Amino acid sequence: MENFTNETIDTTQLPRFEEVEFSVLHPSYWKVTLINTFFFFLILAIGLGLLLFFNQGLLVFLVEISIAFFLFFFTFLTLSRISFKKKGFAFRTHDVLYRYGIIATNTVVIPYNRVQHVALHEGFISRFFGLANIEVFTAGGSSSDIQIPGIEIEQAENIKQLLMGKIQKQL
Score class of each variant (00 low, 15 high):
Ile102Ala: 04
Asp95Asn: 12
Phe22His: 05
Met1Cys: 15
Ile65Val: 13
Asn55Ala: 05
Val118Pro: 00
Leu50Gln: 08
Ser126Gln: 08
Glu2Asn: 15
Leu131Lys: 02
Ile110Lys: 12
Gln56Asp: 13
Ile46Leu: 12
Tyr100Cys: 01
Lys85Gln: 08
Thr138Gln: 07
Asp95Arg: 08
Ser28Val: 00
Ile103Thr: 15
Asp95Met: 05
Leu77His: 05
Phe54Ile: 14
Gly165Cys: 04
Leu120Gly: 06
Tyr29Glu: 02
Gln168Cys: 03
Phe84Lys: 03
Ile125Ala: 01
His117Asp: 14
Leu59Asn: 14
Leu52Thr: 07
Leu52Arg: 08
Ile159Ser: 01
Ala90Ser: 09
Val63Tyr: 13
Ser83Lys: 11
Val32Asn: 00
Gln170Tyr: 05
Phe74Ser: 12
Leu50Asn: 13
Ser126Asn: 01
Asn3Val: 15
Gln161Ile: 04
Glu135Ser: 13
Gly49Phe: 08
Phe84Ile: 04
Thr37Cys: 10
Asn3Cys: 11
Thr93Glu: 15
Leu50His: 05
Ala119Tyr: 10
Gln161Val: 09
Pro15Ala: 10
Phe40Thr: 14
Val32Cys: 02
Leu50Phe: 09
Glu21Asp: 09
Val96Leu: 05
Ile110Phe: 06
Phe84Ser: 04
Val24Tyr: 03
Val96His: 03
Gln147Ile: 14
Val60His: 12
Phe39Arg: 11
Val115Leu: 05
Val115Trp: 01
Ile46Met: 09
Leu44Cys: 07
Ser66Leu: 10
Ile35His: 06
Glu157Leu: 07
Glu154Thr: 13
Gly150Val: 02
Leu77Met: 14
Ala132His: 01
Ser23Phe: 03
Leu42Gln: 05
Thr105Lys: 15
Ser23Met: 05
Leu62Tyr: 10
Phe53Ser: 11
Ala119Gly: 09
Val136Trp: 00
Gln147Tyr: 01
Lys85Asn: 11
Gly57Arg: 10
Gly165Gln: 04
Thr78Ile: 07
Leu50Glu: 09
Gln155His: 11
Leu50Arg: 01
Leu163Gly: 06
Ile65Met: 08
Pro27Ser: 06
His117Leu: 15
Leu14Gln: 12
Ser80Leu: 04
Thr11Phe: 10
Glu64Met: 13
Leu171Pro: 02
Glu157Pro: 02
Gln116Tyr: 11
Ile35Ser: 05
Phe91Gly: 03
Gly130Met: 03
Ile151Phe: 04
Ile134Trp: 03
Ile43Phe: 09
Asn6Ile: 09
Thr8Ala: 13
Leu42Glu: 07
Ile159Cys: 02
Gly140Asp: 12
Ser143Ala: 13
Leu77Cys: 13
Glu18Ala: 15
Arg127Phe: 00
Leu42Ala: 08
Glu152Asn: 12
Leu79Arg: 14
Val115Thr: 08
Thr105Phe: 05
Glu18Thr: 14
Ile148His: 01
Gly47Phe: 07
Lys160Tyr: 04
Phe128Arg: 12
Ile153Lys: 09
Ile82Thr: 13
Lys31Leu: 04
Thr8Tyr: 09
